[in-house]
């Protein structure tokens, strides 16, 4: 479980528009890496290239390489579907399947993977819900619709759904931006505990959140609107927030712009 991500010279395009330019970075296994930066700097776009969700958008394509341990995710032999089974994702807005029960939401990924054994499915669902700190709140209403939960619970349900398929890496695209502070705290605690098992990459607009949960922080910025976003620097979170190398990073974290 948990793999290293190695990105080299990655350019990300929407059609002919270059959205992200020349990103190289390494993400260590069993760590939390946070992406921060102003809106439109391409951090979410870049995140989506790590499980090949970027190409779901018409015209989306990349140049460069993303290695997951020894495997190039963008090699011609690699099926994007299997990439997404290895690299899970949690989105900005909680998106449980509205027509499914809580149980079925968590079991959805297992069923897609062809797991039929009832006992295995039931056990994995319980384990995943416990892993997402949601079990105690929903164990008596597993057959109720997932959409009936509160926003924070729905997001934890989505996390449970993602960890149920035992991915190597978990990507989180602003997972708390639609949630209240209490729910945010619950998710942040969860992220820290999930680090033991997964490699986690999180995009956030909340710098305190990055400081609280991440081991390393990457700052993205763009020169001007319409120009591609770039990785400005990546370092240990403590360093980025106390003693960054780049002036732009310091300006951003001290609130002078962005």
């Amino acid at each position: 479980m948990a793999k290293r991500i190695d990105v080299k010279d990655l350019n990300v395009y929407y059609g002919n528009f270059k959205a992200v330019e020349d990103v190289s970075m390494t993400v260590e296994p069993r760590s939390v890496t946070a992406f921060i930066g102003p809106s439109g700097c391409g951090k979410s776009t870049f995140l989506r290239t790590l499980n090949r969700m970027h190409e779901v958008i018409p015209g989306g394509r990349v140049e460069g390489s993303v290695m997951l341990d020894e495997e190039d995710l963008y090699s011609a032999k690699v099926d994007p579907v299997s990439v997404r089974r290895t690299v899970g994702m949690v989105f900005q807005r909680p998106n449980p399947f509205p027509t499914m029960s809580i149980f079925d939401n968590v079991a959805a990924g297992l069923r897609l993977n062809g797991v039929k054994n009832r006992k295995v499915v039931t056990e994995t669902v319980e384990k995943s819900l416990r892993g997402a700190n949601l079990w105690n709140e929903v164990k008596d209403r597993l057959d109720k619709p997932g959409a009936g939960l509160s926003g924070g619970q729905q997001q934890r349900l989505c996390i449970a759904r993602a960890i149920a398929v035992q991915p190597e890496v978990m990507l989180m695209d602003e997972p708390c931006s639609a949630l209240d502070p209490i729910s945010t705290l619950a998710i942040e605690d969860l992220i820290v505990s999930l680090k033991d098992e997964f490699t986690i990459v999180i995009v956030t607009h909340n710098m305190q959140q990055a400081a609280r949960v991440s081991d390393r922080t990457a700052f993205f910025n763009l020169a001007a609107t319409g120009k591609p976003g770039r990785l400005i620097e990546i370092d240990d979170t403590a360093t980025i927030f106390s003693n960054p190398v780049q002036k732009a990073t310091e300006d951003y974290i001290s609130g002078r712009f962005g």
Binding site: N51, M53, V56, V81, S82, R84, R85, G88, M89, F91, R93, N95, P96, F97, P98, A108, G109, L112, N113, C158, R161, A162, V165
Partner: peptide, 15 residues
């Protein structure tokens, strides 16, 4: 169909 639902399924490794 909300894009969020479709992406949710794709991100789980759905064909």
């Amino acid at each position: 169909t909300p894009a969020a639902n479709k992406e949710g399924a794709l991100a789980l490794g759905a064909t």
